[in-house]
Design a protein around this nucleic acid. Structure first.
Length: 598
RNA sequence: GUCCGCGUAGCUCAGUGGAUAGAGCAGUAGCCUUCUAAGCUAUUGGUCGUAAGUUCGAUUCUUACCGCGGACACCA
């Protein structure tokens, strides 16, 4: 890495010029901004303290030292306290030559025994997936790829919440009002059908509450005493007692949901290495509770409930087991964390879960720590913000959710309409065109969501369709398609690929537009590291956009195939090929496909 | 009430101590007989929520306040 060598040389320069201890030096090396000449910039203000000279003189002295001690350094200029360093052309030419045809440039191979376990998606089986789940899925899936590309083994896991009172509500409503309706007889996707009965339950339940309130009962009391909720609770008890009839109904309706989810996941392009079901894990954790009681870190109260006191940690007391001995959410999560630790021996356990559960994960980590599980530090909650609609949060009961299947369908239709309007369709047959709409529609949606910093809330306006111009997925996809078009034309002209990977006779000056692209390509490996460190696909998304923009400016200003000097033409073709590889890899990290033509 | 997060252009977002705070959308004006115009160029638009502090230097770090969101269940 030339950056590392530059940093080292700079600290060496300062140490030798001003006779101080180089260990204490922190070098701030950054990319030179586009409006100034140079490749890398050092801010020298911090060193004027030791140089006892003006920033300009300090910068010049360091610059002189670098020119005479680092063979890659060509020249420098000083503006105020900024030392802008230019590298020699041969550095950039060699960089291009060595990497332009490496299709896995920037991607490290996964290594090591301890994988990173990433849990994401984790839906409930009582309703279909919505826009919030899409953000979760895209983040989890992309993060997995980013972690892989930065050298980790990764296991992507999904913990499906397939049991509990909410599923019983759908089951009960279907039993009462379903008339034996199935996905087949209704022509409705299974998850949507089950979701429909969840809504039906809620409507009847609300009516019952209203009646009770009208008869003079307090609303809170009414919500607890309504016959429907009592019946749903009864059903849950029957489920826990393995009542065959209830289990059969449960299995049937869950099957419908899974078939529906499979379609949604497939359309979205998401998959998992392993799927866990809460029905099989919800009893885990009770033994850990007992362990905690024995160790004296948990306390059992007279009513039989078990608690941990986290007030010394600045939190509250937390219930770990109900007085009737049944599990709460925390109990299960303790158990599944332990299970996962035993199963994978992971270096990191990542949970992609919305930020409303931050407190829960803080508690989980602390509880495990108090239990003596040193690996609790390996737990990382990727806490992402809500997707908000113009009028506030999505609320399933108020019908303001943006359904995942509907949204993707709309994206495909928008992609088709745009392609038609732009007259792009002549050269595509039906199947090809259909495939292209999917690639572009999904690209637009995924990029729209992933470009936003995960921890921030984001706004989605269903009235305005997701953009296809500007800082968007299709813009980047288009850039890739253009590059492929150039490469195809090069082949047609009989320029074989071996030819344009040898730049030994390239002597021309590198144009600013070419340099700009080269500098972005140069940054790709460190961008992946940064994204992995920050657990943020947005870092990759914004990088891909900037790279595409730089390429488009290059493409606009500079001829490639019509260039008469073969060495120059080949150099530019190499640059195109390299940019295409990196755009494709960056998009792959986001889980976005790139089309060969569009 | 306590705790956590977020306030950057009309709108959606970048910018994890450095130069004149950047993109896209929207608006305006240009560029296709020339490698794909889903592109490129120019231009309009900012007291970086407010106020103090730390620093040679703060949108970035600290504190207080204001605004928005979230959490603090024998729900998940």
């Amino acid at each position: 890495m030339v950056e590392a060598r530059l940093s080292a040389a700079i600290s060496e320069a300062i140490a030798s010029l001003y006779s101080i201890d180089r260990e204490s030096l922190q070098i701030q090396l950054q990319k030179t901004r586009r409006e100034f000449e140079g490749d890398f910039t050092v801010v020298v203000f911090p060193y004027t303290r030791v140089s006892k000279k003006s920033p300009e003189i300090t910068a010049s002295e360091i610059g002189d030292y670098l020119c005479s001690h680092m063979p890659e350094v060509e020249s420098f200029n000083v503006i105020k306290g900024f030392l802008n360093i230019s590298l020699k052309s041969f550095y950039w030419i060699t960089f291009l030559q060595e990497n332009c045809s490496n299709i896995s440039y920037g991607l490290k191979a996964p290594a090591g025994d301890s994988p990173v376990v990433v849990e994401f998606s984790s839906p409930n089986t009582n309703k279909p997936l919505h826009l919030g789940h899409i953000r979760n899925n895209l983040l989890g899936f992309s993060l997995s790829r980013i972690l892989e590309a930065s050298g980790n083994k990764v296991a992507r896991v999904n913990l499906v919440n397939d049991r509990g009172i909410h599923i019983c509500k759908s089951m009960l409503a279907w039993q009462k009002w379903g008339n034996g309706e199935t996905p087949e007889t209704s022509g409705t996707k299974g998850d949507h059908l089950v979701g429909k009965y969840y809504v039906i339950f809620d409507q009847h339940y609300k009516n019952e509450i209203a009646e009770l309130v009208a008869s003079g009962i307090e609303p809170e009391e009414a919500a607890k005493k309504a016959p429907l909720i009592l019946e749903a609770q009864q059903m849950l008890r029957k489920w826990e007692a393995h009542d065959p009839e209830t289990i059969r109904l449960w299995e049937m309706m869950n099957r419908w949901v899974y078939d529906g989810f499979d379609i949604t996941y497939k359309t979205l392009g998401i998959d998992f290495d392993k799927i866990y079901y809460e029905s099989r894990t919800y009893l885990l954790g009770k033994s850990l509770v007992n362990e905690g009681i024995e160790k004296g870190v948990f306390t059992k109260r007279s009513d039989g409930s078990v608690w941990i006191d986290l007030t010394p940690d600045g939190l509250d007391e937390k219930l770990l087991l109900r007085s009737d001995g049944t599990s709460v959410y925390m109990t299960q999560d303790m158990g599944t964390a332990r299970q996962r630790y035993d199963e994978y021996n992971p270096s990191q356990l990542i949970y992609v879960v919305g930020n409303e559960q931050e407190y829960h994960f803080n508690v989980l980590k602390l509880v495990l720590k108090h239990l003596g599980c040193s690996w609790s530090d390996a737990i990382y909650h990727l806490s992402y913000g809500m997707v908000e609609l113009p009028h506030g949060k999505m609320k399933s009961r108020e019908g303001t959710v943006v359904d995942a299947d509907d949204l993707m369908q709309e994206m495909f239709e928008t992609a088709e309409r745009m392609a038609r309007e732009l007259g792009k369709l002549e050269s595509f047959d039906g199947d090809e065109a259909e495939k292209l709409y999917r690639i572009i529609g999904l690209g637009a949606l995924k990029y729209f969501i992933l470009k936003v910093d995960p921890k921030k809330n984001m706004l989605f306006n269903p009235e305005e369709s997701v953009d296809f111009n500007g800082n968007t997925g299709p813009f980047i996809q288009y850039t890739y398609a253009r590059i492929q078009s150039v490469m195809r034309k090069a082949l047609e002209l009989g320029i074989n690929s071996d030819q344009h990977h040898d730049f030994s006779d390239y002597t021309a000056k590198i144009a600013p537009q070419e340099k700009e692209v080269l500098r972005f390509l140069h940054d790709f490996p460190s961008t992946i590291s940064l994204a992995a460190e920050m657990h943020s696909p947005a870092v990759i998304a914004n990088y891909a956009y900037e790279l595409a923009g730089a390429y488009n400016r290059f493409y606009h200003d500079i001829t490639i195939l019509k260039e008469e000097d073969e060495a120059v033409r080949n150099f530019r073709l190499g640059l195109c090929n390299f940019a295409g590889n990196v755009i494709s890899n960056a998009m792959w990290l986001l889980g976005i496909e790139v089309p060969e033509r569009m």
